[in-house]
Amino acid sequence: MPVRRGHVAPQNTFLDTIIRKFEGQSRKFIIANARVENCAVIYCNDGFCELCGYSRAEVMQRPCTCDFLHGPRTQRRAAAQIAQALLGAEERKVEIAFYRKDGSCFLCLVDVVPVKNEDGAVIMFILNFEVVMEKDMVGSPAHDTNHRGPPTSWLAPGRAKTFRLKLPALLALTARESSVRSGGAGGAGAPGAVVVDVDLTPAAPSSESLALDEVTAMDNHVAGLGPAEERRALVGPGSPPRSAPGQLPSPRAHSLNPDASGSSCSLARTRSRESCASVRRASSADDIEAMRAGVLPPPPRHASTGAMHPLRSGLLNSTSDSDLVRYRTISKIPQITLNFVDLKGDPFLASPTSDREIIAPKIKERTHNVTEKVTQVLSLGADVLPEYKLQAPRIHRWTILHYSPFKAVWDWLILLLVIYTAVFTPYSAAFLLKETEEGPPATECGYACQPLAVVDLIVDIMFIVDILINFRTTYVNANEEVVSHPGRIAVHYFKGWFLIDMVAAIPFDLLI
């Protein structure tokens, strides 16, 4: 008679799926529990143990900040960024110097990925580790590398530091407007667009060049630039800015003055950032001319202004700041037409079709709590990747769950009947059967004279019903998954307890 339990259901295979997918890609990662103190490590794979030199037993239950890997060259700011990422709910990448158990130093890129439950609360953290440099290539500990984003994938490793954006290309926007319009339909740009040429040739750093990471940081200074100062900065030398009595002219307006920039070969870094931020506020060169004239017309309804409409929906549905990093990277690809469009465009503009998908598509409701890094690593669709929660398995109709209350009560009843059979069957065979043979035949009273025979008949009927119930009862397979398919249940029961239950259900007393 089957006594099969499996009270692990309803099970959740999400954690096993993450481990299996990460292991298949030869990654070095740990999984931490966000619900406990210090976000203790609950799993670390073999790749991480080989990377740091510690065994799994030495890593388990330690804080996922990996303070046991810190050393003299470990930056405090990087460690603080990892700790801050564990307090938030967004994906974050941090470069930090770690030390192995043998004392060797290596520069590592740590990717902190939160995993949320159905309520939107962070319950786990996945920390992925990628070695960037070994100890002989690690720089000085005073050099802070965590304020910069990861290198873009479309640049060669040897040319990542030679990417320079020439400031004269930004200063000569109005001069290039006529050349853009003359391109017409034969050019790649839309009317009114501004073409910015980027020099990728390796050259020595000069005062006129600005690194790509500095251009990325310009967006942080746009908020500090007032509207009046932006307007004066875009007017140009024809209309000098008016300053109040006793007030000095704005240095932001002076930063885009061609006369002032041409007199000296070098520009201050602050002026460069502010000038680029001011130019980015204009949607095209037409807006710059309109600002000089004193009238700013409404933005025209053409394809170039609607190019950012799908980007707005993608940004609203993005799951991490990696989408913004990807957008900034692609927006700086050289030799393309940049349409400086305000994100607050007309909502009635139709979304044009684009061959290049900048932001990841909208994630469906079932995966809105899973970050983009987890979705990318697992390579699963929205119909396959579940949320991290207890999910009731989908069972067929008329199927009994093996952990249901009805099955528990039924098993206790069958257990009592088995005990009765084990006690009274030998007793009936030894004593009652002998008395029946010696006594007179009682054929007239039937079952009324033999109450134990009636009980034995009921017990046999219950055993037959138990066999039928076992054909529709779920079970737990070797992978700790609840199986509810009727065919698989029948095959599993035939290979197991079916023969024993059938022999126990045969009414031998009635056959004798």
Results as ranks from 00 to 15, higher is better:
P241G: 12
L107S: 15
N339F: 01
K344Y: 05
P299D: 05
P361G: 09
L173W: 14
S354C: 15
G53I: 01
M124F: 13
S283E: 15
H7S: 14
H368C: 13
R164P: 14
S26F: 08
K373S: 04
I333F: 03
E23V: 03
E357C: 14
F340N: 15
R273V: 12
H143Y: 14
D136K: 15
A34Q: 05
K116D: 06
C265I: 12
L385Q: 07
K364W: 05
V138M: 03
F348W: 06
S264A: 14
S239D: 14
M60T: 01
T329V: 07
G224C: 05
D287E: 14
N339C: 02
A268N: 14
G158P: 12
M291D: 11
A142W: 04
G262Y: 15
F48D: 01
H368P: 06
V8E: 12
R273W: 13
S178I: 01
K28N: 15
G53F: 01
I288C: 15
P63N: 12
A303S: 11
I359T: 04
D346Q: 11
R92G: 13
L51V: 01
Q61A: 11
R164S: 12
L267D: 12
L171E: 12
A185R: 06
L170Q: 12
G183W: 06
V215P: 06
S243M: 15
G226C: 13
G184T: 05
Q247A: 11
A9E: 12
P347V: 07
L165G: 15
K362I: 09
E23K: 01
R326Y: 08
S283M: 04
D342V: 01
S104D: 08
T305F: 11
G306N: 05
D321W: 13
F48A: 01
A350V: 05
P168N: 05
V222F: 15
S207R: 15
L127K: 01
A382Q: 15
V115I: 11
E214Y: 11
S179F: 15
D219P: 06
K161W: 10
G184P: 14
I30E: 01
A211G: 06
P168T: 06
T319N: 09
E23T: 07
S104M: 06
E130T: 15
C52V: 13
S320F: 11
V384I: 07
S261K: 04
I19E: 01
I330K: 13
G158T: 06
T17R: 10
E230V: 05
E208D: 15
P245I: 07
P150E: 12
L296P: 11
R181T: 12
L165C: 11
P310W: 10
K332P: 11
K373R: 10
K101E: 01
G158D: 05
H254K: 13
N369L: 09
L15C: 09
L378R: 02
P300I: 14
R312Q: 07
R100V: 01
S140P: 15
V122I: 08
S55A: 06
E95Q: 13
T371R: 07
S263H: 06
V194Q: 01
G236S: 08
G224P: 06
V122Q: 05
L296K: 14
V8T: 15
A290L: 03
D136M: 15
H221K: 15
K28L: 04
L109P: 01
S104A: 07
G345Q: 08
T319M: 07
L171N: 15
R5H: 09
P237M: 14
D197R: 01
A169M: 05
M124K: 04
R164Q: 06
E365W: 15
S318Q: 14
R76K: 15
A185C: 09
V384F: 09
F125N: 12
I31F: 03
P249K: 07
S263F: 08
L338P: 15
P299K: 07
V59E: 01
A303T: 14
V3G: 12
G149R: 09
A190M: 11
P63M: 04
E372D: 04
L385R: 14
H143L: 06
A211W: 01
E177H: 13
K21E: 13
D67N: 09
I19A: 04
D197Y: 01
F106G: 01
R252E: 15
A244C: 08
L51D: 01
K161I: 01
I288N: 14
D321Q: 11
H302P: 05
G294Q: 13
K93Y: 07
R148Y: 05
Q247D: 15
T13A: 07
T216V: 05
A169N: 15
G236R: 09
G186N: 07
L173R: 13
